[in-house]
Nucleic acid binder design. Structure first.
Lengths: 353, 353
DNA sequence: GTGAAAGCGCTAACAG
DNA sequence: CTGTTAGCGCTTTCAC
């Protein structure tokens, strides 16, 4: 038999059940249930009595019982590869806020890179406790998604494409192109790119697309893309700092501008330039992507991808899906905007003809 | 009646129930339940048959049913004021990892400052779906905690003290004192502090304690604490950058060293100094707290508070508590260590006699 | 060691 | 509009 319920370490009071409220209000449990969940077919009078009684008893429905009986749990899973990185924690803030507003609980599943990928997918996500899930910047095989779908868990993706599910993202190719064109428009011809790695099967092709946008813009302008100037970093400030320092070490043959795929990397690049005695944007222009708060102090020009909003919109899409609307597995593209500060300026280096 | 179960948007298969496994294995549901939850009193043979059958059917227990019947949900709540700030997201990573290892689900509750404080405390936490909760750097009134306790939700705090519950923290007073003494030991006498605000009732007195440690060290060394040099910032890089710039503007009357309560603020201070043409540590020494990854590129001297580990330990403590051990409401102090790089050096400014 | 059976607390037909 | 009544799928005594 189940535990008698009650507190585990203090005043062990038996929490009131729906039946208690019904008795006190002088109605049936069915009416209490309807009244409390805001359903139709309850007289104003009954509703009032029920609310009064529930209030008096300090009643809160048991989610387990409610979920078991109804098949819905008002609980959404959020699956991501990292939580201590800016992009992910910011999307998470957006998702969490939107979920609270909608009255949903949030179950967090962190892969920690690939470490818990299998465990989460196999042991956690399938326990039928989720109404749906949002996958942030994750690459899920059709096998993985199919498994979730057939467990009755609809999915919405953020940050790229996901087979068979609706997704929210920005146009990374376009972002890469616009950032590069901003630099080209300022007269730069020697432009390097600091992007992310492909990262196996874990990620959406975000990094690749921004890099492709860079290459496309360069090609259109008839500019060469030197392999040595197309760097791969791990999206951290420090890694970008070190790689940029090496990149800029040669005073004769160095770029006059850098397009970094994230603001943290862009800021690291700026610091590296300064440590080398170069001025920004005097000797080097730098543009990033994100509108990360650290960019302000660096005077960083960037493209705002409205990260938090991506999370908010993902929840919106999910709720629409749950309501049976807009559940086509299409990709919804969110806009991204320039934020021009002063890390980018006209190319002046005489070397750069 | 409840929904027939099954998928919501693809192949609507009825998920196997415990009964199905029992039938296939030729035993009773009671035996299946025992076997699958690793309990005693099951013959090796029965256990094997059950596991085989469960495997075959792809059976996963329904957490709602299981929780309702047992009163336990293997679900822990994590409550914090922000998730998009480094300290919190890093503690969260630690908590999430430890929880996955232990087979627990994680429900995330983000206050967003104070925005959802009431909502979370009132509407979400009390729904009897949590076995316990960890509160990260949160100030909870005895009223709040008592409410949780009597709802049967044990609590563990991280980052300070919490009335009536076990807590994990570092010794902030000591950290503040050691950081300041490091500076004093290098010969500095004009030392400023960049700390956080008291922030109403939301936070643990972390900021205050680090500041108190600073004041204590200064007093012991017979050094004056100028009010104008005891700055209050919001823990962000950018705010620290601006405040430090103002602080250092006066070339005659300015500090030769700064103790910042976080690495992000310390890094912002370093950038501000450089923008003013000052060298670090030549003209200004800076020390932070955190071991934030950004510190490396800045060569920042800091005190590592092993943030992730605080989260891991909190879960450890919680599991002990749930197992009935070590449930005294005591504070467990974790160590913090110096990481000396090159943002701190001997005081050389002639002004500083 | 194993099975029968009584719930856990709530929801949703269905009948009235 | 409201009450009655089956369950939702599992855990856990209790008897065998």
């Amino acid at each position: 038999m189940a535990a008698a319920g009650g507190a585990r370490n203090h005043t062990p009071v038996n929490p009131p059940r729906l039946q208690d409220v019904a008795t006190l209000a002088g109605v049936s449990t069915a009416t209490v249930s309807r009244a409390l969940s805001g359903k139709e077919h309850v007289s104003a009078r009954a509703r009032a009595k029920v609310q009064q009684a529930a209030q008096e008893l300090g009643f809160v429905v048991s989610y387990h019982a409610s979920s078991l009986a109804s098949g819905r749990s008002r609980n959404i899973g959020v699956v991501l590869p990292y939580v201590d990185r800016w992009y992910f924690s910011t999307v998470l803030e957006g998702v969490a806020g939107a979920l609270i507003e909608a009255g949903y609980d949030l179950s967090l599943y962190n892969f920690e890179g690939d470490r818990y990928r299998e465990t989460v997918l196999t042991d956690f996500l399938l326990r039928k406790r989720l109404d749906a899930a949002v996958a942030v910047s994750l690459h899920l095989d059709p096998t993985d998604t199919e498994q979730l779908f057939s467990a009755g868990i609809p999915l919405v993706g953020v940050g790229g494409t996901l087979v068979g599910a609706p997704t929210i993202s920005i146009d990374d190719l376009d972002v890469g192109r616009r950032a590069t064109e901003h630099l080209i428009g300022l007269g730069h011809r020697r432009i390097a790119h600091l992007g992310g790695a492909e990262e196996g099967k874990r990620y959406f092709p975000m990094s690749n697309n921004r890099r492709a946008g860079y290459e496309q813009a360069m090609a259109r302008a008839g500019l060469p893309v030197q392999p040595a100037w197309s760097l791969i970093a791990d999206y951290t400030f420090t890694d970008a700092y070190h790689r940029t320092k090496n990149l800029l070490a040669d005073p004769i043959d160095r770029p006059t501008a850098i397009f970094a795929a994230s603001d943290e990397m862009a800021a690291g690049a700026i610091l590296a330039a300064r440590d080398l005695g170069l001025t920004v944007p005097g000797n080097l222009s730098v543009i990033g992507v994100d509108a990360h708060p650290i960019g302000e102090a660096f005077g960083l020009t960037t493209i705002d991808q409205h990260t938090r909003q991506q999370g908010v919109r993902a929840v919106g899409r999910l709720l629409e899906h749950l309501a049976g609307e807009n559940s086509e597995p299409t990709n919804e593209v969110l806009p991204a905007h320039f934020v021009v500060r002063n890390s980018t300026g006209p190319a002046t280096d005489p070397i750069d003809t």
